[in-house]
Amino acid sequence: MSDLVMVFSSRVAYVAFALLVGIGVFVLVDSDNLLKKVVGLNLFQTGVFLFFITSAFRRDGSAPLLSGPGPVVNPLPHVLILTAIVVGVSVTAVALALLVRVYDEYETLDESEVKEAQQS
């Protein structure tokens, strides 16, 4: 039991990562609302980003500035995730744009209602 507590307290970022990914995937799969699926997708991606950032962590590290004092945290994951966030935002934008078109046509964002409308 105390082991579990140790894990939770010392690896809190990983726990958050797992929770975010889990919740994200759950919403993505379970929700009938297409908009909520986009939210789930974002949670899922955010979880993965957090995982990267966590890997850059260094105890007592400071920001990686050339003029600043060492030790510094690993700058590479930050750079990477900056890119990934941009990608994620673009994906969300496209997804929302598509949903606008879907809503214009079917006047609902509920997946089962859309399906019904499509069949009729």
Binding site: V48, S55, P77
Partner: peptide, 30 residues
């Protein structure tokens, strides 16, 4: 028409999940 938008949306969801899984794999590698 809307079927194309819907197909694109589904493609986007699945495709992004795939790409994000790939990214997670890259994270593990790193």
């Amino acid at each position: 028409g809307a079927p194309a938008a819907l197909a694109a949306f589904r493609y986007l969801l699945v495709g992004t999940v795939g790409a994000t899984l790939y990214l997670l794999g890259v994270g593990y590698l790193y």
